[in-house]
Design a protein around this nucleic acid. Structure first.
Lengths: 132, 132
DNA sequence: CTTGACTCTATAGTTACCATAGAGTTTAGG
DNA sequence: CCTAAACTCTATGGTAACTATAGAGTCAAG
């Protein structure tokens, strides 16, 4: 199949697929006479694997690592576990950061009544105060 | 003062300051004979304002808008309020997304015992299963 | 045999910077 | 006075994971 069909079957954009190829995540089997990329059904599964990983916010570099690991079935999978653990930690950190941010934004928002002028705007005044 | 001193006083990097200038957020008063940027103490406050906004994750475009609004003291400040409200909403959305992600990552993590091999790794198997 | 749909490569854009190169400026010490 | 260190300048490329575009070639149907 050509790249457009692969895109339709997986819900990826054509450009993403080319991008994954450039990043060594998904090679096309071969090219047609007219230099079009050709794929078989195994590539559909490979691309779905990539998509699944991306939906979990794994980076392309990490996905590449997973693909490589997957090709050494006998090895221990501690690296896989460690990668996921580290991700969970990163996400938790980010959530905490955003929650702090949310608190600050709410406080800021409460410093201005809706029907004020720019000159009296509590938000602008608060933003102008030097923070520690 | 020169750019290095401004940087030290505000905790910004020299590059950031030049970047803000290119983005029309902070102009230098004038240049020295040797073409160095020169600033006065008012610029310290302006830069602190920018830093404060950045710490709340406002984009440079939004900060530029706030600076412009700030120069029209008589106008209503509904736009300011709206900007902050919209930010709060964006952050809330992002927190929800990340919490969903966190749940998925935890479930994934639980699918593999620590001492497994790649071939039997529950994580890799789960990632290979086509999602709905 | 032409027209429209598809594909190709290469390049620029997104965001808010950081890093670097290569050159000029200033300042403090010897 | 001179030089070396510290500072500054502009311009460029890199980050992440794509999206969008240009300009050209390929293919299938009517």
């Amino acid at each position: 199949m050509k790249i457009g069909e692969l895109a339709k079957l997986t819900g990826c954009s054509v450009q993403s697929i080319r991008h994954y190829e450039k990043e060594k995540l998904l090679a096309s089997l071969r090219r047609s006479d007219g230099n079009f990329r050709l794929y078989d059904s195994a590539k559909v599964d490979q691309l779905k694997f990539i998509k699944h990983c991306r939906s979990l916010d794994l980076s392309l570099a990490e996905i590449r690592q997973l693909i490589e690991l997957n090709q050494q079935p006998g090895m221990g999978c501690e690296d896989v576990n460690r990668m996921i653990d580290s991700h969970i930690e990163q996400v938790a950190l980010r959530i905490n950061e955003l929650q702090d941010l949310q608190d600050k934004l709410m406080a800021l928002r409460n410093s201005c009544a809706s029907q004020s002028t720019v000159k009296e705007c509590g938000i602008l005044q608060t933003l102008s105060v030097t923070q520690k």
